[in-house]
Design a protein around this nucleic acid. Structure first.
Length: 298
DNA sequence: GGAAGTCAAGTCTCG
DNA sequence: CGAGACTTGACTTCC
């Protein structure tokens, strides 16, 4: 079963554009933020056009595309001010069978025992979902998050995650997918949470290597692919290679070809799927691993 | 004018 | 129990 779409996160090194122009809180006045949003949306458009030329139809938008998007310092009604740019970018993506995503950072923790932290996490997810909504993208365009901390009691932390997710509005919940991480939550843990919440699971090969957890790989993959229902679109995976000589879990500059082929074959045994390449060299790494625009060459 | 330090947020590890 | 890592461009301060 073929690899359907491929892509990379946030930044194109080939055309030197990024959807993550940002600033620091002290200088986050409305005029400054407005300029950064305009820059991010212009770069998003340029990146999507560049990606189309290479047949790259998956892209992760930087979570600072609207800087301080969930912080009170940002009072801009960006969905009104940038309505034309947002709609046009979304229309371009849909017309070209592109799939977009967002991935809030390490500070977005839904299972914290601290209610204020949970509330800020929900605000970040709400903003992220709104961004995809304003582009006009359907619920197969996802927000990827990790499960959070363990706080010395992982079962309780997983229960808190599920309880919080199940209180979210349907529209928001249908945007969220969970990813196995390199330290705390293995694919089996993510599957257990998926059973309680119906959230699809993104499988990350490097995190799996660092933190395999329980279960046999082929069986885990089969179950994980099955968490993607019709409204979620095709299963999605993250691929990266280990950076040699660096900490376990650090992304390498490029994808290691033999390893890439091995995983693509493994995933392809179950279903058509989309693959996000998480290499430090971004789209340069994509060009290297798949020199032709034809994925069929794999 | 270039180098070094700082920046919203959280969690975990190390010393 | 407090500092640093995680990750990274933009900005400020230091020299």
């Amino acid at each position: 079963m073929p690899l359907r779409r491929i892509g990379y996160p946030c930044v194109s090194l080939l055309i030197n554009r990024t959807t993550n122009h940002e600033t620091i809180l002290r200088t986050g006045a409305p005029e400054k933020l407005r300029g950064l949003i305009a820059q991010n949306l212009a770069d998003l458009r340029a990146i999507l056009e560049h990606n189309l030329a290479h047949d790259w139809r998956l892209f992760r938008i930087g979570s600072s595309v609207i800087p301080f998007g969930s912080h009170p310092v940002n009072t801009i009604k960006w969905w009104q001010e940038f309505k034309d740019e947002l709609r046009s970018a979304g229309k371009f993506a849909r017309a070209n069978d592109m799939r977009l995503s967002l991935h809030p950072g390490q500070y977005t923790v839904l299972n914290s025992p601290d209610a204020a932290i949970v509330s800020r996490a929900i605000a970040e997810l709400t903003y992220s979902a709104r961004f995809l909504d304003e582009l006009g993208m359907d619920s197969s365009n996802k927000i990827v998050i990790h499960l959070g901390g363990t706080y010395g009691d992982k079962p309780a932390a997983m229960r808190r995650f599920c309880e919080t997710v199940n209180t979210l509005p349907d529209d928001l919940r249908h945007r969220i997918v969970i990813e196995n991480d390199e330290r705390s939550y293995s694919p089996a843990d993510a599957l257990a949470v998926s059973k309680q919440t119906n959230l699809p699971v993104v499988f990350d090969n490097l995190h799996y290597t660092a933190n395999p957890g329980e279960g046999q790989l082929e069986d885990l993959l089969k179950q994980i692919f099955a968490t993607w229902k019709k409204r979620d679109g095709h299963p999605k995976v993250h691929f990266s290679s280990q950076a040699q000589g660096r900490k376990l879990g650090s992304h390498a500059d490029q994808a290691e070809p033999a390893e890439f082929k091995k995983w693509v074959k493994r995933w392809g045994a179950f279903d058509e799927f989309d693959l996000m390449l998480e290499a430090k060299h971004k789209d340069k790494a994509l060009l290297q691993i798949i020199p032709s625009t034809k994925k069929e060459n794999l």
